[in-house]
Amino acid sequence: MLAFVTGGVRSGKSQFAESLAMKIAKRDNKSLYYIATSLRTDQEMDERIKRHQANRSNHQLPWGTCEKSKDVGMLAERFSKKDVILLDCLTILLSNEMFHASRQEFSNEFSNKLFLKIVREIEKLKMASHTLIIVTNEVFHEKVSTDRGVFLYTKLLGKLHQHLVESSDAAFSVEYGVPIVKKGSCI
């Protein structure tokens, strides 16, 4: 099963996704895993990471954590159909893949290859698990930058969102801490 969770920054999407993962794991007697894609880049990010870790440790069900900023498909062999995986978040994963590699010329060919790479890696995680929940940021309410790299990033993220929602079993948008079902349901 694939669930897609989106929302604005600080909308409560990660908290909702964690709650969803725990409900599925408890209902179906599965293990919980968290794939963290964030890099510790500054004090604010370090505090956010610590807050997320504390939230997960305060629950009755234990979480395993994998820190993987790129190439998340390589983790698939660690999981089984006994696992519920929460990947947080696609927005940062794409940024890591696109901007932290050797400096790329941001061509359409590069964008297409990266799209296919990320889709394949997510498919590997989905196939290796009972449930994969993907968290992402809604960044499409802002004016799009004219910078070539940022423009292609935004375009690629939108393309990934559309593909993942289309192939998902459930999709949610979280606004002000309130999840809104956009497609299906898995709880």
Score class of each variant (00 low, 15 high):
L2F: 10
G7K: 02
V9E: 13
V9Q: 07
S11M: 08
S14R: 05
Q15Y: 09
S19Y: 11
K23C: 04
K23H: 11
A25R: 00
K26T: 09
D28I: 01
N29M: 11
N29L: 12
K30V: 04
A36T: 03
A36Y: 06
T37G: 03
T37F: 09
L39K: 15
T41L: 14
T41D: 06
Q43P: 04
Q43H: 08
E44Y: 06
D46R: 07
E47H: 12
I49D: 00
I49A: 00
K50H: 11
H52A: 13
Q53G: 09
N55E: 12
R56S: 07
R56Q: 08
N58H: 13
Q60W: 00
Q60D: 15
L61A: 06
T65S: 03
C66M: 11
K68W: 03
S69C: 09
D71R: 13
M74D: 14
E77N: 15
E77T: 11
F79N: 01
V84K: 02
V84R: 10
I85W: 02
L86F: 08
C89W: 04
L90H: 05
T91V: 01
L93T: 03
S95C: 02
S95T: 14
H100G: 10
Q104G: 03
Q104I: 10
E105L: 13
F106Q: 10
N108G: 12
N108H: 12
N112V: 03
K113S: 09
K113Y: 12
L114G: 03
L114S: 05
L114P: 01
F115V: 09
F115I: 05
I118A: 12
I118G: 11
V119E: 09
E123P: 02
K126S: 07
A128D: 04
A128E: 06
S129R: 11
S129T: 08
T131G: 10
T131C: 14
L132C: 00
I133C: 00
I134T: 02
T136Q: 02
T136N: 10
K143I: 15
K143M: 12
V144T: 13
S145L: 06
T146P: 09
G149R: 08
L152R: 07
L152D: 01
Y153N: 01
Y153R: 01
Y153M: 02
K155A: 11
L156R: 06
L156K: 01
L157V: 07
G158H: 05
Q162R: 15
H163I: 03
H163E: 12
V165N: 02
S167N: 15
S167E: 15
S167T: 13
S168M: 03
S168F: 04
S168I: 00
D169G: 12
D169V: 08
D169L: 10
A170R: 07
A171M: 04
A171L: 07
F172T: 06
S173C: 11
S173Q: 02
E175T: 14
E175N: 02
V178K: 11
P179G: 00
P179F: 03
P179N: 07
P179Q: 05
I180S: 01
S185E: 15
C186P: 02
I187N: 11
